[in-house]
Write a protein that binds this DNA or RNA. Sequence first.
DNA 1: TTTTCCAGCTAATACGGATTATCACCGCTA
DNA 2: TAGCGGTGATAATCCGTATTAGCTGGAAAA
Lengths: 330, 330
Amino acid sequence: MAGVSQTTVSLVLNGRAEGEVRISQETRDRVLQVIRETGYVADPVARRLADRRNRILGVFTYEAVFPAESADFYHPFLVGIEECAEEAGCDLLLFTSAKVVQGERRRIFSAESRIRLADGCVLLGRTVDKDDLARLLTEGIPFVSVGRRDDAGGPVPYVGADYPPAVRALVERAAALGHRRLAYVGVGVGAESYSDRLRGFTEAVAAVGAEGLHLTSADGLFDTGATAVLAEELADGVAIVRAARERGLDVPRDLSVLVLGAHTTPVRTDIDFTGLRIPRREMGRRAVELLTQVLESGGAPQDMLPCELVEGSTLAPVQNAPVQNAPVQN
Amino acid sequence: MAGVSQTTVSLVLNGRAEGEVRISQETRDRVLQVIRETGYVADPVARRLADRRNRILGVFTYEAVFPAESADFYHPFLVGIEECAEEAGCDLLLFTSAKVVQGERRRIFSAESRIRLADGCVLLGRTVDKDDLARLLTEGIPFVSVGRRDDAGGPVPYVGADYPPAVRALVERAAALGHRRLAYVGVGVGAESYSDRLRGFTEAVAAVGAEGLHLTSADGLFDTGATAVLAEELADGVAIVRAARERGLDVPRDLSVLVLGAHTTPVRTDIDFTGLRIPRREMGRRAVELLTQVLESGGAPQDMLPCELVEGSTLAPVQNAPVQNAPVQN
DNA sequence: TTTTCCAGCTAATACGGATTATCACCGCTA
DNA sequence: TAGCGGTGATAATCCGTATTAGCTGGAAAA
């Protein structure tokens, strides 16, 4: 329509017509005019094929993102991811095509894996298959994990929540309020985020000279003599409080309960737990930032974001024990 | 690696090696073996370029989908969309690249519109620009709107909520409880969903022989003598109840308040409104179903899904007026 | 023996852009 | 008049796949 070649249109469209390659102002205007009239837009697919970039960022979760079961947990991450993708001018691709087979998890790599459709990918989830991580690395697929991951045949790019310092701060607070016997309830293994919490706990009790117990469930907790308990997840905290109340114990008067994470499974509760806040939205944002960095210059950047302490109302001084004179940490 | 041509791999990969074109079992096995070993996956981008199909469905909203402001409203739609996309084996592309310019809405068509990246697109939002719809139609871009839309230079494919019958049922209920003077509070124009509600109201009051008033806001409502009010949106309902209480009126004893829609803006309320339920999740599902239909056979399918009545507790018989003997509609 | 047929595979091409090397043209110089 | 340099545009090529027409060698048919 403008009487020029495809090349010329491409050059004009991409503003390449000013440096090395020259197109006269006249021709350029004519092309732009036609583009305006027809609303022509370069096919993004062809574009991607040619220059190996999509401006599409993939989001992979082993579970469905939206359904209520996990929505509350994933939502804040997605908010951050969306915000940052928007700023970066990228679209988000949700890998919903990988059907969740009965009783199994989604797989990143299947016969029809579409992971490569995107320029890079954000991995969301409590755990990620180590094999999957290794393969992502060996295949050179750019990605960033939301949540710290151990090496998988090489360093894994991630943005994690820095639990140890936050857990330590909580333990110090409890110690300052006279607690000398603390329990940690939760599996403490499996996901890196769990072991980080447990490690933080172990180190912290040692540092403050308190006694630390690790229980995998609330059972037996009340026989240990612990006056404060750190729950690995919100669900654990809720269960502990319920069990305590059934025994006629008051929280926090008789037992302080600190929660170390948001719910990953749906729990409805109005309890205003003392604990820490996982900076989920910030993690989402940061993951996209790191991903664009990986796309530009490669590497395996790793970043830990601090967890904020939540004041709450489930931590109190130990009963019948004088509060130490140590100042309350903040 | 298998000592065969790219064509052969393509044929094997797509199972085309059985009909017209033949590949020996031996060769096929060899190719499949190598595919298994290397984890080779056809580049979806090249694939799309070649056969014009992606198995990617786009989701376009004028506002950001995830942020809290609109999350509660959009979420149920997305649940349905994701479910159905998963069943269809499609990935979802969220068009986050179109930046929301200060004070403006996102645009479907911009200089860098990426709408064509997807095979087709689901449009989400209270309103959709008529120009955008017209252009989608003329450019032959497959899409389905969530929410009924008036023609835009041609019929628009959509799945909508069927307000009129539900509104009518509510009006009939109110009438059966003695209400003869009903008010509708809301703009009643702008979005098709609003005019549908108002139209349902107007027709219903006429049908039951009651008196109907249309107010664009709650101001002046209490001078009209209306004993029941239908609020266009949840926010309107909340405002009305608040205003009523400030005047010392009890809801529903002195004033019945029916709500005709979910919140599109965030409102926190514990009021158990009588009203109707927009089948959002179902609409999301249906939208994807219709979209796949459009992709396969074209056309502009339109579907209206029924709204469910919500019993609630804000509808009561008119005070000082005998309840009519008419049976309560259900 | 020559032709026909068919199974089994591949060369060539299309898809719609981005990129690069090249080309035509003009005015100017030697 | 041949040579030269700069300007403005384009032909050719590539990206990785799907598709189609065609090629090859050997067996069956003529």
